[in-house]
């Protein structure tokens, strides 16, 4: 079993064994990132493929500073954004209107209450633009300014999409919770 350093060095030398080791070790983590951005497995795997190619051919640029997995995750995120732009004309387009929303107030979200699969389902159910912004902001921790640059949108667009994504998510989580409570009662 190759360790991370050996994998990186091997990949720099275009060694097939190292490339395969990289895939076996990191593909499932990276696919987890892709699927959050795409919502569709087939598209996520396309993103993974394209992203991995970038990883293999640019691995010399990874100077060994910072975390290797985060470097690869960032490449996946960028690839997902490229896919998003490419597909934008096929996907539906967001209109950003400031429509007042009644939020479910006081719903406290307990980490333990929701499974990962439920959260993923909620993410998958978001409109594409919301999903991009939500992932970039909430999970990856980018600033709205950075997101606006990456997605080529206005900063306010990023902010308003994020807030609407959140209220959609809150609603969906709220209804998940209600369903869960109902089944509890029945039991």
């Amino acid at each position: 079993m190759l360790d991370e350093k050996e994998i990186i060095e091997g990949c720099c030398r275009n060694e097939r064994k190292a490339q395969k080791a990289l895939y076996e070790r990191y593909a499932s983590i990276l696919l987890g990132v892709c699927i959050r951005y795409s919502g569709r497995r087939d598209e996520a795997e396309d993103i993974l493929q394209d992203g991995l190619i970038k990883v293999y051919f640019n691995i010399k640029d990874f100077a060994g500073k910072g975390s290797f997995i985060n470097w690869m995750k960032k490449i996946m995120v960028n690839t997902a954004i490229t896919h998003y732009h490419r597909n934008l004309k096929h996907h539906y387009h967001q209109d950003i209107e400031d429509i007042r929303e009644t939020d479910i107030e006081g719903t406290s979200l307990d980490t333990a209450e929701f499974t990962r699969e439920e959260l993923l389902k909620v993410i998958k159910g978001l409109p594409h633009g919301y999903r991009m912004v939500f992932n970039l902001y909430a999970v990856e921790g980018f600033k709205h300014k950075e997101i606006a640059r990456m997605l080529e949108v206005d900063v306010n667009t990023s902010k308003s999409q994020y807030s609407r994504a959140k209220s959609l998510i809150r609603k969906k989580l709220g209804s998940l919770k209600k369903i869960a409570e109902k089944t509890d009662e029945q039991e």
């Binding site: 499932s28 696919l31 987890g32 699927i35 959050r36 795997e45 493929q49 979200l109 993923l120 809150r170």
Partner: peptide, 22 residues
Amino acid sequence: NMEKLFRTQMESYTVDPSPGLW
């Protein structure tokens, strides 16, 4: 709370690629 919820749950989320993807 919501950001923390998603970040903690999704940070280490893994999906096994389809066989043959390699």
